[in-house]
């Protein structure tokens, strides 16, 4: 045989190894699915539970009272809030709020926090209004403070302690978070 016949044979054999491997891979190849995504349960929740590590108030330029600062947040829809049929309590951090007006689909609460200096003297008192509207597609949360000092102290308080706001259903045996 001529020398170039050997070369052709060797090239063909090498090429067939490559083609064979790829042919095997392609024949064996199957469609596949790795993992799954389910975020359907991320668009509503059973009860309201808002938590954050801090809170920043913005100046409300449309407010009737000057120097009003608000924090607004749209949250997930709460599935079955109905104060006409159920009883609820509102909890801010570890405090159960008493000055609360609970309507069929809304909650309004007033809070007051006093701040003391290292001598035990009252430095600042701050009022904060909380409103929660349970809408058909989302929940709207709003905190309102009036006055720069109140804003500054409340922001410091939440930066130090974080915020955990819960609307908890009261059932006969206890409470359901």
């Amino acid at each position: 045989m001529k020398w170039y016949v050997y070369v052709i044979c060797v090239v063909l054999i090498i090429a067939s190894v490559f083609c064979g491997i790829n042919l095997y891979k392609e024949i064996k190849a199957e469609s596949y699915i790795n993992g799954q995504i389910d975020i359907t349960n991320r668009f509503s929740q059973e009860s309201l539970c808002y938590s954050a590590t801090n809170l920043v108030f913005n100046l409300d330029t449309y407010a009737d009272v000057p120097d009003t600062y608000v924090f607004e947040q749209s949250l997930l829809k709460v599935d079955d809030f109905n104060a006409e049929k159920k009883n609820y309590q509102v909890k801010l951090n570890n405090y159960i709020l008493f000055d609360v007006q609970i309507n069929a689909g809304s909650v309004f609460a007033n809070t007051h926090i006093d701040f003391y200096d290292t001598n035990g003297e009252l430095t600042q008192g701050a009022d904060m209004k909380i409103s929660i509207l349970f809408l058909s597609d989302k929940t709207q949360l709003k905190f309102v403070v009036v006055g720069q000092e109140s804003r500054a102290f409340m922001e410091k308080y939440f930066a130090d302690n974080g915020i955990r706001l819960q609307v908890i259903e009261i059932i006969e045996e206890g409470v359901k978070a």
Binding site: L12, L23, E30, Y32, N34, G35
Partner: peptide, 23 residues
């Protein structure tokens, strides 16, 4: 083998789809 591969690759091959979901 080369011919079979060429035929399969260009004329016969079925489409495969891989899906990765990052959750």
């Amino acid at each position: 083998v080369c011919c079979v591969y060429g035929y399969y690759h260009f004329c016969v091959k079925d489409i495969t789809i891989g899906t990765n979901y990052v959750d």
